[in-house]
Simulated scan of single mutants.
Amino acid sequence: MTMAHHRDFKSANPIMRLRDGTAVRTWKNLAGVDHVFLADANDRMIYGGYVGWIHSQGLNEAITRIRKDFT
Results as ranks from 00 to 15, higher is better:
Met1Ser: 03
Met1Tyr: 00
Met1Leu: 00
Thr2Ile: 05
Met3Trp: 01
Ala4Thr: 01
Ala4Pro: 01
Ala4Asn: 02
His5Leu: 06
His5Gly: 08
His6Trp: 03
His6Leu: 04
His6Cys: 00
Arg7Ser: 12
Arg7His: 11
Arg7Leu: 07
Asp8Phe: 10
Asp8Arg: 08
Asp8His: 09
Asp8Ala: 00
Phe9Cys: 03
Phe9Asn: 03
Lys10Asp: 07
Lys10Gly: 04
Ser11Thr: 02
Ala12Tyr: 03
Ala12Ser: 12
Ala12Lys: 05
Asn13Val: 05
Asn13His: 09
Pro14Cys: 04
Pro14Asp: 09
Ile15Gly: 06
Met16Lys: 06
Arg17Asp: 02
Leu18Asp: 09
Arg19Met: 11
Arg19Gln: 14
Gly21Glu: 04
Gly21Tyr: 03
Gly21Trp: 04
Thr22Trp: 09
Thr22Gln: 08
Thr22Val: 13
Ala23Phe: 10
Ala23Val: 13
Ala23Asn: 12
Val24Ser: 08
Val24Tyr: 07
Val24Leu: 15
Val24Arg: 10
Arg25Met: 07
Arg25Asn: 13
Thr26Asp: 08
Thr26His: 02
Thr26Trp: 00
Lys28Trp: 00
Lys28Val: 08
Lys28Leu: 01
Asn29Pro: 02
Asn29Ala: 04
Ala31Thr: 03
Ala31Gln: 09
Ala31Ser: 09
Gly32Met: 01
Gly32Cys: 05
Val33Tyr: 01
Asp34Thr: 00
Asp34Glu: 11
Asp34Ile: 00
Asp34His: 07
Asp34Ala: 07
His35Val: 00
His35Leu: 05
His35Arg: 05
Val36Arg: 08
Val36Leu: 11
Val36Thr: 09
Phe37Val: 00
Phe37Glu: 01
Phe37Asn: 03
Phe37Ile: 01
Leu38Gln: 06
Leu38Lys: 04
Leu38Cys: 08
Ala39Lys: 06
Ala39Met: 07
Ala39Trp: 02
Asp40Lys: 05
Asp40Gln: 06
Asp40Gly: 05
Asp40Ala: 04
Ala41Asn: 10
Ala41Cys: 06
Ala41Met: 09
Asn42Thr: 09
Asn42Met: 07
Asn42Gly: 10
Asp43Met: 10
Asp43Pro: 01
Asp43Gln: 13
Arg44Cys: 02
Ile46Asn: 11
Ile46Tyr: 09
Tyr47Ala: 15
Tyr47Thr: 06
Tyr47Val: 06
Tyr47Leu: 14
Gly48Tyr: 03
Gly48Trp: 02
Gly49Asp: 11
Gly49Ser: 14
Tyr50Phe: 15
Tyr50Gln: 12
Tyr50Leu: 06
Val51Lys: 05
Val51Tyr: 04
Val51Pro: 04
Gly52Trp: 10
Trp53Leu: 10
Trp53Ala: 14
Trp53Thr: 12
Ile54Lys: 13
Ile54Asn: 10
His55Ala: 12
His55Ser: 12
Ser56Pro: 01
Ser56Asn: 10
Ser56Glu: 12
Gly58Asp: 05
Gly58Phe: 01
Gly58His: 06
Gly58Arg: 07
Leu59His: 06
Leu59Gln: 11
Asn60Pro: 01
Glu61Arg: 15
Glu61Phe: 11
Thr64Asp: 15
Thr64Lys: 15
Thr64Phe: 09
Arg65Thr: 15
Arg65Cys: 11
Arg67Leu: 09
Arg67Phe: 07
Arg67Asn: 13
Lys68Arg: 14
Lys68Ser: 14
Asp69Glu: 14
Asp69Arg: 13
Asp69Cys: 07
Phe70Gln: 15
Phe70Ser: 12
Thr71Trp: 00
Thr71Asp: 10
Thr71Ser: 15
